[in-house]
Design a protein around this nucleic acid. Structure first.
Length: 689
DNA sequence: AAGCAATAG
DNA sequence: GGTTCTATTGCTT
């Protein structure tokens, strides 16, 4: 319901055009790079009172979703506004905050606290996502090294820009002062001339915030510091719509100001719990903890990283995000327990996802379905997923406009994955479904693409890096695989020799580990996916050539008529027979039967299911369960417990001890960094299109 | 390559 | 710590 297809509203077109005139500070974009930035200091990074000469900016937009809605409807600026997703307020404007509304408050609490609160539904992220990429692209047009963090935050490495300004600056330090706040200092107290790089960083931050406001109408905070960790921490110190700089001598002040380890970016719930188990709760505790004690619990690399974090040391690079690596769509709900509903939801989600994918222009190589199951006993959270390759012809339908066809082909693929997770005969209770496309390949124009389809390579792609600093093959590959300038436009309007060569180079660079994966259009997955839905006498290849309407008819009849062989298993162990005798049972059987009904035709992948019907003996209780007690439980709960046990859900995690995980040394740097030089073009993400 | 955990907004 | 709707990275198999 929420992902209604309201797709394109052109109402924001006014902002979208003014991107390319980045004239202002922009000598930046094109040149950049090489030398400087990481001169030898990638590895030896001691916190010491030294020179971390990077200048990193962090931008954090003020209550982003609310801002987007207020732009769409300016009347909302004056009222308390909350953005609602399902039953919670995910964010709200400052008018609402002043009246006591907070983020992640339940809708009922919020209305109680603030009866005049105006609510806007925010389940459909389309507008937020579009604006989010406009922000990233605007920043990118000034400086190429922009890394996204969620929809509303961006890191920018402006080191090169600062150095260039520094070089072309005479020694006149007249009126040379910080823009915005200086953490822990009164600006009068600070001699700006002692911190020329940070001062220029604050000027750039101010200019970029000005650009965001002027061109996109958005306000937000900025932080200026020598690394990402510190930039992020300091950006939140004056809110909203302000900026602040952190001086090196105040690093320990800001770290010590954090109320607990959980506040350190990079320390999540699990890590915080493990630290607490070691008796560590404050930043100070961790700073003083011997490294070896930490290494015992976390392994050497993680131990060092955690230590560094609490000291304010972070050498992780600003890695340009580029276009997204996956597109997904999901919906949550209180309860979904029939295959019919699942089928419809999957179809609905796929319809909007395929549409988004089409607009993106790239071709997905893998598809993933994920679910979240309700569990009565435990409130156990946990998502399960299954994924599979997308047959080439299906991928082509997605990118080349045959959206309707693509959905028709993807739905059975999704149901096949669903059946790998959810046992046919057993009752189930889902609270979420997610569909995801990943492994997104840019395709140049036309046929060339198919020569390069094999999946992206693993880590062994040593793309040599000119600047000798650390730069992983993955990053280099990412950049190469990215759309060239005007990638999407160009591919829509004809062809791009240029881009093809880029793609070719990338393809050549990586190894083509490939083989079976993408090469053959009629691999087993393709065949099985289609044949499962088809009467045995229909050739899948022929099927593809049929008119869409005929295809749909065939598929529909397949659903309705599939063998009900599985449905008997529904009344296992004398439990409540499932619901009523509506045709939902038939649909369920059909959905469950993808793997079994048409098995004659194609060899098949799965077949781990269905060796025998579930008998009561399959449903024995775990040893710690008293059958007498069990029988007293509500039938509802009984069913859920049974299906849980049957699924062999993993032993519950003991909250106590974790895996020791003593790491066998080695495993040196991974992911490290990448720095690279060219301007990054994501124009397509911002075109008014 | 697949699946999941952890982290993030 | 969970609620929503995403998205990324790294570990493990």
């Amino acid at each position: 319901m929420e992902n209604s297809e309201d797709e394109m509203e052109e109402d924001e077109a006014e902002w979208t055009n003014s991107f390319v005139d980045s004239s202002a500070l922009s000598s930046a974009a094109a040149s950049a790079s090489s030398s400087s930035s990481t001169s030898g200091r990638g590895t030896s990074n001691k916190p010491g009172p030294g020179h971390d000469h990077r200048v990193i900016l962090h931008f954090d937009l003020d209550c982003f979703y609310a801002q987007v809605e207020m732009i769409r409807n300016p009347a909302l600026r004056e009222v308390p506004l909350g953005i609602q997703q399902k039953y919670i307020i995910v964010t709200c404007n400052y008018v609402a905050r002043d009246l006591g509304v907070t983020k992640l408050m339940s809708v009922t609490d919020a209305k109680e606290k603030c009866p005049s609160l105006v609510l806007v539904r925010g389940e459909d992220l389309t507008h937020y996502r579009e604006m989010s990429y406009k922000v990233t692209e605007l920043l990118t047009s000034y400086c190429p090294l922009v890394e996204r963090l969620g929809f509303d935050e961006n890191f920018v490495d402006v080191t090169d820009l600062v150095e260039r300004r520094l070089a072309e600056m005479a020694t006149e330090s007249d009126g040379f002062s910080f823009k915005g706040h200086v953490y822990g200092r009164s600006s009068a107290d600070v001699k700006a001339a002692d911190y020329p790089a940070l001062v220029l960083g604050s000027h750039i931050a101010a200019e970029l915030r000005e650009a965001l406001s002027g061109k996109l109408g958005l306000t937000g905070c900025a932080g200026v510091a020598s690394n990402k960790l510190l930039a992020k921490l300091v950006s939140g110190t004056f809110k909203p719509n302000q900026q602040t700089v952190l001086l090196p001598e105040n690093v320990s002040d800001i770290m010590d100001s954090l109320s607990g380890l959980r506040k350190v970016p990079g320390v999540g719930h699990q890590t915080a719990k493990r630290l607490q188990a070691l008796g560590l709760v404050s930043v100070k505790d961790l700073q003083l903890c011997p490294l070896d004690d930490l290494a015992t619990e976390f392994g050497g690399a993680t131990a060092q990283r955690l230590k560094n974090l609490v000291l304010g040391v972070d050498d992780s690079p600003v890695t340009p995000s580029g276009p997204p690596q996956s597109l997904s769509d999901e919906d949550s709900f209180k309860k979904m327990s029939s295959p019919q509903e699942v089928l419809e939801k999957v179809q609905q989600l796929l319809t909007s996802l395929v549409e988004r994918m089409h607009k993106d222009g790239r071709q997905p190589q893998t598809f993933r379905l994920t679910i979240r199951r309700y569990s009565a006993t435990n409130k156990w959270f946990g998502r399960e997923s299954r994924q599979c390759p997308i047959p080439n012809h299906v991928g082509q339908k997605i990118s080349s406009g045959g959206s309707e066809d693509a959905v028709v082909l993807l739905v059975p693929l999704a149901m096949k994955l669903f059946n790998k997770m959810v046992d046919g005969g057993a009752a189930f209770h889902l609270t979420l479904i997610n569909v995801c496309f990943s492994n997104l390949q840019s395709r140049g124009a036309g046929a060339i693409t198919s020569f390069f389809t094999p999946a992206t390579s693993p880590g062994k792609t040593q793309a040599q890096v000119q600047d000798g600093s650390s730069d992983s093959g993955v990053i280099a590959q990412r950049r190469l695989a990215r759309k060239g300038p005007f990638g999407c436009e160009a591919s829509l309007h004809g062809f791009t020799r240029k881009q093809s060569s880029v793609v070719a180079a990338a393809a050549a660079a990586r190894k083509a580990s490939c083989s079976e994966a993408g090469r053959d259009p009629d691999d087993s997955t393709t065949t099985s996916a289609v044949t499962h839905r088809l009467p045995a006498n229909v050739d899948p290849e022929v099927f593809e050539l049929l008119p869409e309407e005929i295809q749909k008819e065939l598929l529909a009849s397949d659903f309705a008529l599939s063998s009900p062989s599985v449905s008997d298993s529904a009344h296992m162990s004398g439990n409540k027979p499932p619901q009523t005798f509506t045709d939902s049972e038939n649909i369920k059987a059909a959905a469950n039967g993808f793997d079994s009904t048409s098995r004659g035709t194609g060899g098949d992948v799965t077949d781990e299911e269905r060796p025998s019907l579930p008998r009561s003996s399959d449903c024995e209780f775990p040893g710690n369960v008293d059958p007498g007690v069990f029988s007293e439980l509500p039938p509802d709960v009984q069913r859920e417990l049974l299906s849980e046990w049957k699924q062999q859900k993993p032993a519950l995690k003991t909250p106590s001890s974790r895996k020791p995980a003593a790491r066998s040394s080695t495993s040196r740097d991974r992911k490290t960094a990448g720095r690279s030089s060219q301007a990054n073009n994501l124009f397509k993400y911002f075109k008014p299109s």
